[in-house]
Protein backbone atom coordinates (compact mmCIF):
# COMPACT_ATOMS: atom_id res chain seq x y z
CA UNK A 1 0.00 0.00 0.00
CA UNK A 2 1.24 3.49 -0.79
CA UNK A 3 0.77 6.09 1.89
CA UNK A 4 2.00 9.58 2.65
CA UNK A 5 4.34 10.12 5.59
CA UNK A 6 4.52 13.52 7.27
CA UNK A 7 7.85 14.15 8.97
CA UNK A 8 8.19 16.61 11.86
CA UNK A 9 10.91 19.25 11.73
CA UNK A 10 12.96 17.53 14.41
CA UNK A 11 13.40 14.37 12.30
CA UNK A 12 13.90 16.06 8.92
CA UNK A 13 17.67 16.58 9.15
CA UNK A 14 18.13 12.83 9.58
CA UNK A 15 15.60 12.03 6.83
CA UNK A 16 16.90 13.96 3.86
CA UNK A 17 15.23 17.24 4.80
CA UNK A 18 11.87 16.24 3.37
CA UNK A 19 8.61 17.15 5.09
CA UNK A 20 6.42 14.68 3.22
CA UNK A 21 7.44 11.44 1.51
CA UNK A 22 5.65 8.47 -0.08
CA UNK A 23 6.02 5.20 1.80
CA UNK A 24 5.06 1.59 1.14
CA UNK A 25 3.85 -1.00 3.60
CA UNK A 26 0.73 -2.79 4.80
CA UNK A 27 1.26 -2.05 8.49
CA UNK A 28 2.75 0.76 10.56
CA UNK A 29 5.51 -1.61 11.64
CA UNK A 30 6.47 -2.37 8.04
CA UNK A 31 6.63 1.31 7.19
CA UNK A 32 8.73 2.18 10.25
CA UNK A 33 11.08 -0.76 9.67
CA UNK A 34 11.68 0.38 6.09
CA UNK A 35 12.38 3.89 7.34
CA UNK A 36 14.98 2.61 9.80
CA UNK A 37 16.69 0.80 6.93
CA UNK A 38 16.73 3.90 4.76
CA UNK A 39 17.56 6.26 7.64
CA UNK A 40 19.47 4.25 10.26
CA UNK A 41 20.16 7.36 12.35
CA UNK A 42 16.52 7.57 13.44
CA UNK A 43 16.07 3.91 14.38
CA UNK A 44 16.39 4.55 18.11
CA UNK A 45 13.72 7.23 17.94
CA UNK A 46 11.13 5.07 16.20
CA UNK A 47 11.29 1.50 17.45
CA UNK A 48 12.46 -0.42 20.48
CA UNK A 49 14.79 -3.39 20.05
CA UNK A 50 11.79 -5.73 20.25
CA UNK A 51 10.09 -3.94 17.34
CA UNK A 52 7.47 -2.14 19.42
CA UNK A 53 6.87 1.60 19.18
CA UNK A 54 9.29 3.80 21.09
CA UNK A 55 7.73 5.21 24.24
CA UNK A 56 8.32 8.80 23.07
CA UNK A 57 7.03 8.41 19.54
CA UNK A 58 3.42 9.06 18.65
CA UNK A 59 2.25 7.76 15.29
CA UNK A 60 -1.03 8.80 13.75
CA UNK A 61 -2.75 7.21 10.77
CA UNK A 62 -5.01 9.96 9.49
CA UNK A 63 -6.66 11.16 12.74
CA UNK A 64 -6.06 8.05 14.80
CA UNK A 65 -3.32 7.31 17.33
CA UNK A 66 -1.99 3.88 16.36
CA UNK A 67 -1.63 2.89 20.02
CA UNK A 68 -5.39 2.39 19.88
CA UNK A 69 -5.23 0.52 16.55
CA UNK A 70 -2.81 -2.23 17.50
CA UNK A 71 0.46 -0.29 17.52
CA UNK A 72 2.90 -1.53 14.89
CA UNK A 73 0.24 -3.99 13.69
CA UNK A 74 -2.08 -1.15 12.65
CA UNK A 75 -2.94 -1.56 8.99
CA UNK A 76 -2.24 0.99 6.28
CA UNK A 77 -4.58 1.60 3.35
CA UNK A 78 -3.82 3.30 0.08
CA UNK A 79 -3.52 7.07 0.42
CA UNK A 80 -3.50 7.01 4.23
CA UNK A 81 -1.61 9.84 5.87
CA UNK A 82 0.90 8.74 8.51
CA UNK A 83 2.27 11.37 10.88
CA UNK A 84 5.27 10.86 13.15
CA UNK A 85 5.19 13.00 16.28
CA UNK A 86 8.00 12.61 18.80
CA UNK A 87 6.55 13.27 22.26
CA UNK A 88 7.02 16.75 23.69
CA UNK A 89 7.83 16.07 27.31
CA UNK A 90 10.16 16.84 30.17
CA UNK A 91 10.38 17.07 33.88
CA UNK A 92 12.52 16.57 36.91
CA UNK A 93 12.70 12.79 37.05
Amino acid sequence: MAAVLRIPTVLRPAMGGESVIAVEGSTVGEVLLKLTTTYPAIKGQLLNDDGTLHRFLNVYVNDDDVRYLGGVEASIANNDEITLLPAVAGGVW
Partner: peptide, 18 residues
Amino acid sequence: ADSAKVYEIDPGVLLRAY
Protein backbone atom coordinates in the same frame (compact mmCIF):
# COMPACT_ATOMS: atom_id res chain seq x y z
CA ALA B 1 1.73 12.78 32.36
CA ASP B 2 -0.70 14.00 35.05
CA SER B 3 2.21 14.82 37.32
CA ALA B 4 3.70 17.60 39.44
CA LYS B 5 7.19 16.59 38.32
CA VAL B 6 6.88 15.78 34.63
CA TYR B 7 4.87 16.98 31.70
CA GLU B 8 3.89 15.61 28.34
CA ILE B 9 1.90 17.44 25.70
CA ASP B 10 -1.31 15.68 24.66
CA PRO B 11 -0.32 14.07 21.32
CA GLY B 12 -3.74 14.96 19.87
CA VAL B 13 -3.10 18.62 20.66
CA LEU B 14 0.33 18.28 19.05
CA LEU B 15 -1.14 16.73 15.89
CA ARG B 16 -3.79 19.44 15.53
CA ALA B 17 -1.24 22.18 16.23
CA TYR B 18 1.06 20.94 13.46
